[in-house]
């Protein structure tokens, strides 16, 4: 049987800011959905310690996350429309790199970087919706991770309080729950609210 594809997503462009535990997994979900186009950004290389939650493989350690994400996603769908940028995002670069995006996924690790991305998308870009994550560290408490609509252009995923710290590690299951909340919120906003702009 042919899998269902959403015609509403065919022309959608989604930006992913950071390809760590959140971004590498959000990109997988959106590639499987056959989203129109993904713009992937990260400046970092893969480290051994990333493999506990990020969608990379042990033979990819030492390589750029952008390049390996492109490779992995093309193994899912060789026809996927993907654009990769090895760049450290700043308030100046964000509106340029994500210019054509309907939605931007905030997938950073550090709290101040999350703040910078969300503030920049809301203040410097006039259309894009931003889906951000705050509070995903530790394990268990699956149902405390929620998706909230903060305002017309801001959706926030997470339990809002669980930051990383000593004794509070990031784990594949709970980061994965947050990443898939994020991908699901992006899907919902594209299909229910933005599809008329995408036709």
């Amino acid at each position: 049987m042919t899998p269902h594809t959403f015609y509403e997503l065919k022309n959608a462009v989604v930006g992913i800011a950071g390809l760590g535990g959140l971004g590498s997994n959000v990109a997988v979900a959106l590639t499987r959905l056959r989203i129109g186009k993904l713009i992937l950004t990260d400046f970092d290389i893969i480290e051994e310690s990333n493999l506990n939650r990020q969608n990379y493989f042990s033979d990819q350690v030492g390589q750029h996350k952008v390049e390996m994400s492109l490779e992995n996603l093309r193994r899912i769908n060789p026809e996927a429309d993907l654009e990769g940028h090895k760049v450290r995002l700043t308030p100046e670069k964000i509106p340029q790199v994500f210019k054509d995006c309907h939605v931007v996924a905030e997938c950073f690790d550090r709290a101040d970087q999350k703040q910078m991305l969300v503030e920049t998308v809301l203040s410097k870009m006039k259309q894009a919706v931003v889906v951000s994550v705050s509070g995903l560290a530790g394990y268990g408490r699956s149902n405390e991770i929620r998706t909230r609509r903060i305002s017309e252009r801001l959706i926030l995923v997470g339990d809002t309080v669980s930051g990383t710290g000593p004794g509070v590690p990031l784990t594949a299951p709970r980061v994965g729950i947050a990443a898939y909340h994020q991908a699901n919120a992006i899907t919902e906003v594209l299909i229910n609210e933005l599809h008329t702009k995408l036709l």
Partner: peptide
Amino acid sequence: RKNFAQTELKDQMGIELIRFVGGG
């Protein structure tokens, strides 16, 4: 954020404060 110090508050304003904690 650069305008926080100049942003004056008035009675009855509706304020959303979205706080970020680390992890991703």
